[in-house]
Design a protein around this nucleic acid. Structure first.
Lengths: 344, 344
DNA sequence: ATTTTCCGAGCAATCGATTCCGCATTTTGG
DNA sequence: CCAAAATGCGGAATCGATTGCTCGGAAAAT
């Protein structure tokens, strides 16, 4: 009936016991008689007692909370990674605080402050695109606070990180296109200052070379991988090289932009031009034909990242060595790349 | 240089002051000399002092944290609402804890417990599909804890809520199709136990009636609004009524499922059949042609919901009356519905 | 010059749970 | 049967920041 929450002290008076006894009864730690424990637990249930997490956290120096900083929360990728993070954290009894940097280094710094003052026990970060300087994360390491980067990670060896093997994924995709008989494969690449884009581009080059195909600059175009830029990239490529028989783009959105252009040029997908993207966005199942793409294991990335982080949190003297996990992507083959029988 | 974080007590000893003075210097509250304030602030900066949020929260009885429970975090809608929530909360200096119920009433209950013990100052909830009984939210109200529902709200008058005017949005969409000259408009509806789907269906019926068009059962089909069910629905509708000249679906995914079916039947979009969906999912810009749809004002819903919640949090004796906000959706007209000139 | 204000700062209690220490009482073992 | 050990529980300190109360001294007022 009491409106405000019951405290341990209240339980104590009602049962003529001391607060310490109540605490022990509820936690099951320490020496306590079975009978008392029962009595306490029963009353706690009756009064709908709920421990004050803040007080416990303060006393124990453990907030049971993890912090996450992502560039943004909308859009498939991070939402799915977050799902994995939230899942893993919850299972381990941890809460999660999520912050968005909005792709802004300043925001990112503020987010970090917020999480630090909130006394989180560990932090997961995917860097914003505008973050050049990772100095602010130095403070975290100096504070001996577990820190794990995922997906967008700084190029430092001494940090823990979970990343995708972009190179492998891209290589497999191009391999697959080659296997379909394509020989003039174009590439729509992303900003080369991003290592993920660089790796996808490198894989494209290497896969061609492995098949003794020459590198043809008229088959390569870099852009920001948005929908309109994808469209424009396709137009440019078609103009430069009307003979192309496949396109591998560094993300799915670019492919989505390219499709109408190809169709407008009277080219059939996949018979005339095979397509493969990267990310396995949900919408790849909504295009016609469905897109071949590379799955990024989003949820697994999230789960892996929390696992790493929680391992670090568990290690007492926080004297862990930085660990680095590389997830293997999975090529998802759909209609957009299947030239059953080929044309040559 | 000190690895562990500096506390107020530390600052106090270093400056030969008492903790209370430090606290007042930092907060700017209470009587304190300008000089002392400067000295304290400077040292705080030097030592990179960061207040312990837990301690302050415990003492002040205010955690400065809000809790959110959503059915899931992936997928456009909730991610975008969350963005709005996070934005609004951050601006007001509040942190956000996000929980996913996974469309599971049991999980939802657990999430609630988690948030309560975390001492959040207010809770935002969008109900899971399997939640029939909202008893567990009664506890929250009894605790006098501000509570705001959004989008998926319980059918109770005495709770605060932010919802979309589904009826209006759907009505406008059908109006628009009628305006394009369509007369045999089909409807792919969602589960009728969900009020949002019911409202969209009602609007469809009412709009037709307003134009003196008869209700034709062969033009209506209900399903779960998934991609495959959308496809199947379209097949059924075409079979029942090959003459249909437009389709209004209760969500975008169903339209995406319907499109290939229409195309396979040799019908052109929008010349032969005009299409309109609901939700303004991101992928509606990726289809060919782009989809006409109803925007749900996701971010605004998020921002509105936090604003309501924070208003409630601010009111001292929490004696607020429940408030209900109905957001007006926005019809987004794109190619899929534009029969410029019509066909007769 | 003396009294009244006021100002800056310290003391100590407080938020609620946890935990080390210690005191009785009971149980065990020799 | 008595010493030693184990058991059940209470007392009190603690985590770190906040805040009401108090107090000495300086400034202002009479």
């Amino acid at each position: 009936m009491n409106l405000s929450r019951a405290s341990i002290a209240e339980l104590a008076t009602k049962l003529n016991l001391s607060p310490s006894t109540i605490s022990r009864a509820l936690s099951g730690q320490g020496r306590i008689s079975e009978e008392t424990r029962q009595r306490v637990r029963q009353l706690a249930q009756e009064l709908n007692y709920q421990p004050n997490h803040l007080a416990a956290a303060l006393r124990k120096g453990r907030s049971n909370t993890l912090g996450v900083i992502v560039p943004h929360i909308d859009g498939d990728f991070f939402a799915r990674v977050l799902k994995g993070i939230e899942h893993g954290a919850t299972q381990a009894g941890f809460n999660v605080m999520v912050c968005q940097s909005n792709e802004n280094a300043g925001h990112e710094k503020k987010n970090l402050d917020t999480l630090l003052t909130a006394q989180v026990e560990g932090i997961l970060v995917s860097l914003s695109l505008t973050t050049k300087d990772v100095q602010h994360f130095e403070d975290v390491r100096r504070r001996d606070l577990p820190l794990v980067f995922f997906d967008r990670v700084p190029e430092l060896p001494q940090v823990s990180a979970v990343v995708l093997d972009d190179y492998q994924g891209a290589y497999q995709a191009v391999e697959h296109l080659l296997g379909q008989g394509c020989r003039r494969i174009a590439h729509i690449g992303g900003p080369q200052h991003l290592n993920i884009c660089r790796n996808r581009y490198r894989a494209y080059c290497d896969a061609l070379r492995a098949h003794d195909l020459p590198y043809d600059p008229t088959l390569v175009h870099f852009c920001d991988l948005t929908l309109p830029e994808g469209r424009q990239a396709m137009e440019t490529l078609l103009e430069q090289n009307p003979q192309l028989d496949a396109v591998f783009a560094a993300n799915d959105l670019a492919v989505a932009g390219a499709m109408p252009v190809l169709r407008a040029a009277g080219l059939r997908i996949p018979q005339d031009v095979a397509l493969a993207g990267f990310s396995n966005e949900l919408f790849t199942l909504l295009t016609e034909p469905h897109l071949t793409t590379v799955d990024q294991r989003c949820e697994e990335m999230g789960r892996t990242a929390v696992r790493l982080l929680l391992d670090m949190v568990a290690e007492q003297p926080h004297q862990y060595a930085p660990r680095r996990v590389v997830l293997q992507p999975e090529l998802v083959i759909r209609e957009s790349s299947q030239q059953a029988g080929g044309r040559g």
